[in-house]
Design a binder for these strands. Structure first.
Lengths: 355, 355
DNA sequence: CAGTGTCATGACATCCATGACATGACACTG
DNA sequence: CAGTGTCATGTCATGGATGTCATGACACTG
């Protein structure tokens, strides 16, 4: 690999002049510039980032750690991969600011995190992004607290800047969209207990009802999520049967996420209940492989991973560029769009349909 | 950030001794070693990778480019993200060899690839991984042909080492599993034309039939994939209706991928056909969010992204460690497992069931 | 034309870690 | 005890790019 000296020799100038031509930090005569450009092309010269960053202390590097950052669940949850979207959009945004992105995966083990951080430190990363595979609260504070960092899809109690999905707002908007179609009896199949998303989405659901003046009916809320466990399908089937056994059954069903919606579609069809004619169904996440493939296509609230990745990169960039994290909005919630598709229509005329 | 000099001063030794203590490339007295270790901990010293790699020309860096590498389809295909698994497993394998992974996404534009490569070159990566989001042939040869690289999920005509899914073998095994249950009439809903996977899976299907002595019936093969286009559902419904209108309808249906299987489940249920009692259904990809969520759970052939990422990293490591790419098996095909789940059972006793 | 400013460029030190080489302190051999 | 080997450590130069300072060549001002 040629060095700046090789280029200098070939162009008949000093290395420093080549440096100037490349970085444009001082005037270089047109003729000289061209000679240098030619030499660079001839030699396939690419400046060494290592040498460069040794002098400038600015490395232009950012590290990203994916995987379970918390010690809570150290198993790689099936199907719960943090969407590549976060990585992609963060990388793309960082690139705009001339930063390169390193990634490392903790493989689900929080013990490995300090080691990964060390590795990043060795590369003198300017900042770091921690990405959890699922909205969660970090239990152990992250080591190396002096490094500038932004949490994505997770938060801690130390006030580290974090970018989170607005589960509550998303669910609120979604339920509002359901209400807007005229539904009054809206069931809710909730996610597993203990997840922040579970509580937040529930609150969004309730708030939307309240705002619309629709009474909250606890009979319309049942748990359905066993994280893919075998018994899950039965649980959902039971829940749906209970709903439809009610004196006033629901005309719309909110599923905690799109995955649950798949199961709901299956059960309803097996019961001879047609979506959306008999009952509307909505999900959450906009997991497009599901939401666009189900028939009818699923109405759902987007889990805005793309926007989150981008925003996290943006915040990190701001922090790196000097603006100390503005204390006011340390935690930023990103609200996803409501994507209305075929599975949501007005309730059937005869609302008291009993199956 | 402290330097090796700071550590040396604090431990009362020369920088070189610190270096030796860290790298273990020469004997260091026990007492000295401890003093150094203490100083390192006190100062939170982490050796600078930049300075280190300047001397040794070994950077320990590997770059990965994801996204559409070919110029063929420059739109970010919905739902067609290369699974994060490839990235994760590759990174994890590289880490074992002490390599760090840089990633960059072409964002679907092949024009951006040279620029990304330049960026990697600046970091003096030792090798690169190109990951396509979908099994494909690269049309433009990659620039910088001197860099050591491995292609993942794609291949070119230059004999660049590549790691591919064994679509043919996977489909073969899957169909064999179906045949083993006693099915003779096995329909096949194919993927979009022109994809390597489409042809290969078809060949696997045919070979398995041939080996079992089951005649290939063109009436049992219909296209079903419009890449998520709106008309897809209808196409699939029509195809299924045609199948069941045959004098001897299929007792099992192979779907080109798991996504199609979702649609098939929907249509069949709407027709009152029960899976797997009336007909068995199998997919391809083992997209677990789908295959484990559908009811009944989907039998499918794994698209071995995890193994591919790991294997690619392994091959790259081998190449980097000197072993010139063994000319014989430049292209490696990884076969995924067949995952038998509830959707596959023996055919119904009365095979001539007509719906 | 001397004096001053601007422009283009070069010389040199420097960033941090390490390879090559050297050295002081011992221990051992004959 | 001179000679040799081993061990632990130090000195110095180096890698590639760049910040700092210096300088030669002009152009312009009065």
């Amino acid at each position: 690999m040629p060095t700046i000296y090789d280029v200098a020799k070939r162009a008949g100038v000093s290395p420093k002049t080549v440096s100037r031509a490349i970085n444009g930090d001082a005037p270089v005569a047109e003729a000289t510039r061209e000679a240098i450009a030619l030499a660079i092309r001839d030699l396939d010269y690419v400046p060494s980032h290592a040498a460069r960053s040794m002098r400038s202390t600015k490395t232009g590097l950012v590290g990203m750690i994916t995987g379970a950052v918390s010690g809570a669940s150290d198993a790689s949850a099936p199907g719960g991969l943090p969407d590549l979207l976060i990585v992609q959009t963060a990388q793309s945004r960082l690139e705009q600011s001339g930063k390169a992105l390193f990634i490392a995966d903790s493989g689900g083990s929080s013990q490995r995190v300090p080691e990964l951080i060390m590795r990043f430190q060795a590369h003198r990363v300017e900042g770091m992004l921690f990405v959890a595979e699922q909205h969660k609260r970090l239990v152990d504070p992250l080591p190396w607290s002096d490094t500038k960092k932004v949490l994505v899809n997770c938060f801690d109690d130390e006030g580290t800047p974090a970018v989170l999905p607005d589960d509550e707002g998303g669910q609120f908007d979604l339920v509002e969209a359901v209400l807007a179609k005229g539904h009054k009896r809206i069931a809710f199949l909730t996610l597993a207990d203990g997840l922040p998303a579970t509580q937040l989405r529930m609150r969004g659901y309730q708030n939307a009802l309240t705002k619309a003046g629709v009474a909250f009916d606890p009979d319309l809320v049942l748990p359905a999520d066993l994280m893919g466990d075998a018994a899950e399908h039965e649980l959902i089937a039971d829940a749906l049967d209970k709903f439809f056994a009610l004196p006033s059954p629901p005309t719309a069903i909110c599923c905690g996420n799109d995955r649950l919606a798949v199961a709901v579609y299956g059960v309803l069809r097996a019961r001879g209940i047609t979506i959306p004619d008999d009952v509307s169904v909505v999900g959450f996440d906009d997991y497009r492989v599901i939401s666009e493939t189900l028939y009818p296509k699923l109405t759902t609230a987007e889990l805005p991973y793309a926007a989150m990745g981008q925003r996290a990169a943006e915040i990190l960039t701001e922090i790196l560029e000097g603006a100390e994290a503005p204390a006011e909005k340390i935690t930023e919630r990103i609200k996803g769009r409501v994507v209305v598709r075929e599975s949501l229509v007005p309730p059937p005329a005869n609302t008291s349909t009993n199956h």
